[in-house]
Design a protein around this nucleic acid. Structure first.
Length: 207
DNA sequence: TGCCAGGCCCTCTTTAGGGCCTT
């Protein structure tokens, strides 16, 4: 049983690149302790710009919904209290960390928490799968879902279930008593072909 | 005004290109 907690988060945004002016429009996050979701955070946020029809269709989040939503500043201040000092997890964390860092910078704050990526880790733990998109993983691993996709809280919850599934599968296959966050961080940087050896050796050397 | 992502990972690789993954 992991003795640490993680916050699994997901952003919906106006596009793919905060460097080119894209902004967050929704954040969803769950706090996972001992393989259980024990708290949730969700909010739309008004980006102060119109989102494209593609984004309206992709997420189901409309300009009308965003018009009456709180500001990004307000929501991000609340979210910093929710994430506190917990380790962070996201599916394709490079994307979410870029938006998180960009929005934090706009409110003069900085992230100090470590980020782990469930996409990179699942590619190493489930190399037999041909697709590692969140939707495919939910299907192939029979993860709990309410059928909603591309909304922040629903995606964060599915990612949390994926995270727990990964931890449990590594325990079962390699005989870990617990799977530290740092081990999964390091696993995500090991080459795919060396991942099984890395895990086997780590299991042999655990305290 | 309009330009328009970034990083991983494989391979017919490393003097590179293209698919995947996120919205």
């Amino acid at each position: 049983m992991g003795n640490y907690s993680v916050v699994v988060l997901d952003f919906e945004t106006t596009g793919l690149s905060p460097q080119y002016g894209d902004r967050a429009i929704e954040i969803g996050a769950v706090l996972v302790e001992n393989n259980e979701i024990v708290d949730r955070f969700q909010s739309l946020m008004n980006p102060g710009m119109k989102v494209s029809s593609f984004i309206e269709e992709y997420t189901g989040i409309t300009n009308r919904m965003l018009d009456s939503s709180p500001s990004i500043t307000e929501v991000m201040h609340e979210f910093t209290r929710f994430m506190a000092q917990h380790h962070l997890v996201a599916h394709n964390a490079g994307f979410d960390s870029r938006f998180l860092d960009a929005e934090l910078q706009r409110i003069n704050q900085q992230r100090c928490q470590e980020f782990a990526c469930s996409l990179l880790i699942s590619r190493r733990v489930y190399p037999e799968l041909t697709s590692h998109s969140l939707e495919s993983l939910v299907r192939s691993k029979n993860l709990k879902t309410d059928g909603v996709h591309h909304r922040a809280l629903a995606d964060a919850e599915m990612t949390a279930h994926l995270w727990v599934n990964i931890v449990n599968d590594i325990k079962a296959e390699y005989g870990f008593k617990q799977v530290p966050f740092d081990l999964l961080k390091r696993l995500s940087k090991v080459s795919k072909s060396l991942a099984p050896t890395f895990l086997r050796r780590a299991a042999e050397n655990q305290e």
